[in-house]
C-alpha cells in the first residue's frame, strides 16, 4: 500500500505533467501561462509535502505536543509563490503587448505574420 500512502506525490506528478503538457501543446499564449502556473503549483505542493512529519502538528509551541511539521518548506514556498506571481504578471503583460502588436495571441498566427514581414 506504499503507493497509496504517497498519494500527494502522485498528485504532484499529475499536476506537473499536466502543466508541462499545456505549455508545450497549446498555441494560445494565455493558456501557456496557465499551464506554467499549474506546473509551478505542483512544485509548491511537492515542497509542502516534504515538510509534513507523520503525526506532527502545526509548528506552534504548545503544551503536551512534541512532534511538529517542518515549517521551513512552507516559508520557502512563500518566496516561490511570490516569484510565480511576478512571472505570471510579466507573462500576461507581454501577452497584452503582443496582442497590441499582432492583433492575435495564437502562436501559429504570430508565426505566419512574422514570416511575411
Amino acid at each position: 500500500m506504499a503507493a497509496v500512502g504517497l498519494y500527494n506525490y502522485w498528485i504532484v506528478v499529475f499536476l506537473m505533467m499536466a502543466g508541462f503538457y499545456i505549455v508545450i501543446a497549446h498555441d494560445n499564449l494565455v493558456k501557456k501561462i496557465v499551464g506554467l502556473n499549474v506546473f509551478q503549483a505542483s512544485v509548491f505542493v511537492l515542497y509542502i509535502t516534504f515538510g509534513k512529519v507523520q503525526g506532527g502538528t502545526a509548528p506552534i509551541i504548545a503544551e503536551g505536543i512534541t512532534t511538529y511539521s517542518n515549517p521551513l518548506p512552507h516559508v520557502l514556498i512563500l518566496t516561490a509563490i511570490v516569484v510565480g506571481v511576478a512571472t505570471t504578471a510579466l507573462g500576461l503583460a507581454l501577452v497584452i503587448r503582443i496582442n497590441e502588436a499582432y492583433g492575435t495571441i495564437e502562436e501559429d498566427e504570430i508565426h505566419i505574420q512574422d514570416g511575411e514581414s
Binding site: 499564449l29 506546473f39 511537492l46 516534504f50 512571472t87 507573462g91 507581454l94 503582443i98 502588436a101
Partner: peptide, 29 residues
C-alpha cells in the same frame, strides 16, 4: 515587435528551467 515574442518565449522556457532547479533543490533538501 518580434522582441515581444522573443521575450515571451524566453519567459516560458526560463521559468521551466527555474522550476526544474527548484524541484532539484527541493529534492536535495
Amino acid at each position: 515587435r518580434r522582441a515581444l515574442t522573443a521575450a515571451y518565449q524566453y519567459l516560458v522556457l526560463g521559468t521551466i528551467g527555474a522550476t526544474f532547479i527548484v524541484i532539484g533543490i527541493g529534492l536535495l533538501y
